[in-house]
Structure formats: structure tokens, C-alpha cells
Design a protein around this nucleic acid. Structure first.
Lengths: 136, 136
DNA sequence: ATAATTGCAAATGCTTTGCTTGTGA
DNA sequence: TCACAAGCAAAGCATTTGCAATTAT
């Protein structure tokens, strides 16, 4: 269980404080997509003095440094995850909120083509699928 | 320039007041994707007594009735447009905020397949492309 | 008549910020 | 050392809501 976010912060020259190290660690060890409140709870289990303002400032800092990714899924507050090199999109279970990550190169390619056809260079995109589990 | 939203409200049994009729009219005549503030400004040019609370309540009501669509594009407040039968997605110009609508059946189809492969029935999705204009 | 809607202002929920004290490089 | 970060509480912003007055059917 390595602290990838901390390593990436060092690479990017982000100054590391105890609070930031801890937030980085907790995020690196999270396999879900916690929101700021949830992150605050998790870090507070280890250091109860970290304020929510610091968590907000830190996730923003990390996001700007490109070491974490922020997501605004429908009807929810912002959620965060460790940034990965391989881009991926998300499928959200409409009943449970559970998130599944996926990659589909064909869709990626088509998006680029659509943008170009409309006279644009694609610089970013957002693709979220909302689904309900098929019981079998 | 017909008031499609008002017509659809009648079909759906949504009670119509003067304020709602005016908001419906302004939205029907808008070809862009205004936010609540902008809508409030537009209706206030005609009836300056309509409060922003009423605009908020009305767009929510219209959305729940399925006669308008709400969009939360990245980094912006919610924007609204008349609901259309034909589904479409959006390309947002990252420099100007200008919005272009598009439809791509191949992407739609692939989304459904991706969801199914993951064991989900696709019930909704969000696809937004962010691009910058190619100068030629 | 009367249940629903409006306008206003106050409340909300998430997020940011000013300020003073504390601290990493 | 000293520019930057943390903690706290207050402010900000978009949106919602309680309530008394008004209105549609």
C-alpha cells in the first residue's frame, strides 16, 4: 500500500506538511471515490486536529497539481480519487451509488472525431453512465 | 415562435400561473442554455416583479415534469434548455462557453454495450465534450 | 372556497477565505 | 529565518424554504 500521491507531490514540487502527507496517504489507500466530508472523517481517525478547511485546500491543491482527480457526479458533492495515467470513465449505480471504472477506446476515438467534425480540438470530456444492476 | 414548454405543461397537467407562462415563454424562445440568473433577467424585462425564488421553483417544476432539461456543466451553475424528444449531447467551447449540440448514435450504442458488459442496464448518461475552436 | 403559488427574507449546504498562529525547507 | 500552511470562524454563492399574502380553478 504505497503512498503514490505523496510520491507524485514530491515529483511536482508540492510542499508537504504532516496534514498533506496524511491526506495523501488516506486518499492513496482509498479504493472508492470519497467526498471531502468522508476524507475529513478518515483523516480525523488518525489525526483529529485536521480541519475540514485544510482538507478542502489540500484536495484543491492536489487537483491543481494533477495528482488527484475531482468528479462532480449528478446530484452529489464533489468526489475525489487518485489520478491515474490511464484515463477512465465511470459508471454509477443509480441505486447504491457504487462506482465502476471503465475504459473504452472506441468511444474515446469517436468523441475526438465528433469534436473535430464540429470544428473543435477536444481538450477534455466527461462521460458518466448511470445504470441499475441486472440481476441474474 | 411557439411556446412549446407551455403546451407541454398543459399536456402534463402542470398548473400555469402568469409567472410560469412567462418563464415558459422566455425559455421556449431561448436558443441558448441560460442559467437561472439569466432567465430571471430575461423575464424581468417583461415582468419586473417576478422573484428569483419563483424562477428557481419553476425550472425545478418544469424539470420534474420533463418539459425542460437541466445541465451542470463543469465549473458553472446549472443551465436549462427546453426538453426535446431527440436526445442530444453537448460540446462546450472552453474559451467562450458557447454550446453546440450533437447526436452520435455510435457512441450511444457503445455506452449501452459498456453498461451491459459491466452487468448494468443503462438508465441515464452524461456526455460532455470540452473543446477549443480550430482556426482555419 | 380553498388548495396552491408567490415574494420576501432567512436558512441551507458546500466551499472558500481572512486572519493569527504555527511550521517546513 | 520566513514565506507558506493550518485552524478557526466568518463569508460567499447557488439554491431552497418558512411564512404570510395572493391567486387560479
Amino acid at each position: 500500500m504505497n503512498n503514490v500521491i505523496e510520491d507524485n507531490c514530491i515529483k511536482k514540487g508540492v510542499r508537504l506538511t504532516d496534514q498533506r502527507k496524511l491526506i495523501a496517504k488516506v486518499m492513496s489507500e482509498s479504493n472508492d471515490h470519497p467526498d471531502v466530508d468522508e476524507l475529513h472523517k478518515r483523516v480525523n481517525k488518525i489525526d483529529s486536529k485536521i480541519s475540514i478547511a485544510t482538507v478542502y485546500r489540500t484536495v484543491k491543491l492536489f487537483e491543481e497539481a494533477g495528482v488527484v482527480a475531482k468528479h462532480d457526479f449528478k446530484g452529489n458533492k464533489a468526489r475525489y480519487e487518485e489520478a491515474t495515467q490511464e484515463h477512465h470513465d465511470h459508471l454509477i449505480d443509480v441505486n447504491t451509488g457504487e462506482i465502476t471504472e471503465f475504459v473504452n477506446e472506441d468511444i474515446e476515438e469517436l468523441q475526438k472525431k465528433v469534436a473535430e467534425k464540429l470544428g473543435y480540438k477536444l481538450v477534455d470530456h466527461r462521460l458518466e453512465l448511470y445504470g441499475s444492476k441486472i440481476k441474474k
